[in-house]
Simulated assay, not measured.
Amino acid sequence: MKFRALMQDAMYMREFQAIVATLAKLAKDCVMILGDRQMHFIVNEDQSSAASPLVWATIAADEYFPEYRMEAARSDQEYIVLSMSSANLGRALSVLRGGGVSMCKLKLQRIQFPCISVIASVQSSSSSEAREVVHDVPVTIIPASDWAAYVVPRVPNSQLALSLPSLRLLRSLIDKLKNISPSLEFQASFDGELSVIAASEMSTVTSRFQKLLPRSLTVSQQEASCSVDSRKASAFFGALQLSNEELTIGIDQEHSIHLQIDVRQDVVLHSILPAVCV
């Protein structure tokens, strides 16, 4: 099997690093699924933390990588599936946050162990010549017989979805509401109103967002609501390292909430917050 990808645009490199940094804040390990045209990252709920949500990212290869090559172990296989430390990958990519990086390569290779090598060309302020910075991130190659446990999650069928123009405001709100109630209820209406409710024995706090853009998937559905774990919601928003402001919240009535950040047209960060009983 072979994998090699090249990034050269500074903005795209910073976005890619921010996506991985977000995942690294949510769980110790992540799964990397390499297809011939798409790359996926998945972090499942951390067994050591009940507040860790399910989050995944889907990246179209041609958005970030002018050169992208993937060859599976066998001709009848469509993917390479790898497991690795999200923290180690995040540290390896942290060089992309600074200036002076003209190129970054990702390469699957075996040195003393299977690894993803992150190779960055960095222009030094004290020299006219670029220096090469290399980090080898150990990976576990998942055999095809185990792929069923590592599939990309499906986006739930939301009855009602609203687009929020201010991600920062909602993040600050949820950070405060998690201290009031262990659960948060999201109520959405087709007229563009979203209510976030935190209730306790002492008080009920309701925050409303109005004049939002509705994206209803079920035309007959005028309202939808769902209660989710406030710690999981706060963990997702607190981990975000992306500068994008717009967020889409989809509600699958009394089943789950789907959070979606469109970094680019074909680069999307997802999270699913399952419903809780209140």
Rank of each mutant, 00 (worst) to 15 (best):
95 V>S: 05
74 R>W: 00
41 F>A: 07
112 Q>F: 11
198 A>K: 13
9 D>R: 14
11 M>A: 14
142 I>F: 03
177 L>M: 06
104 C>Y: 08
97 R>V: 00
86 S>I: 06
259 L>Y: 06
275 A>H: 11
182 P>R: 00
275 A>W: 00
227 S>P: 00
195 S>V: 01
151 V>F: 03
245 E>Q: 15
254 E>Q: 05
136 D>H: 10
211 K>G: 04
265 Q>S: 14
180 I>T: 12
130 A>K: 12
203 S>Y: 01
136 D>G: 00
12 Y>L: 15
209 F>W: 03
14 R>T: 08
94 S>P: 07
5 A>Y: 00
188 A>Q: 10
38 Q>T: 13
115 C>P: 02
43 V>Y: 08
124 S>Q: 13
15 E>L: 13
158 S>K: 04
92 A>M: 08
218 T>F: 02
198 A>L: 04
61 A>C: 09
174 I>A: 03
73 A>G: 01
260 Q>M: 14
31 V>D: 07
86 S>Y: 10
117 S>L: 06
84 M>N: 01
22 T>N: 01
198 A>Y: 02
164 L>P: 06
126 S>C: 08
2 K>W: 00
52 S>I: 09
256 S>E: 09
187 Q>C: 09
258 H>F: 10
268 V>F: 07
77 Q>H: 11
60 A>V: 00
129 E>S: 05
76 D>Y: 14
15 E>V: 06
96 L>V: 09
248 T>M: 08
210 Q>L: 06
232 K>Q: 15
119 I>C: 14
173 L>E: 14
28 K>D: 10
229 D>M: 02
251 I>S: 05
218 T>Q: 09
143 P>H: 14
25 K>A: 10
81 V>L: 03
129 E>A: 02
46 D>Y: 05
91 R>V: 03
49 S>N: 15
261 I>V: 11
141 I>H: 01
157 N>G: 04
112 Q>T: 12
278 V>I: 05
213 L>Y: 01
157 N>V: 05
113 F>M: 12
270 H>F: 13
6 L>P: 00
263 V>K: 07
120 A>G: 06
274 P>Q: 02
200 S>T: 12
44 N>L: 05
78 E>T: 10
54 L>E: 12
54 L>N: 07
208 R>Y: 02
43 V>F: 08
216 S>C: 07
147 W>Y: 15
62 D>W: 08
186 F>H: 01
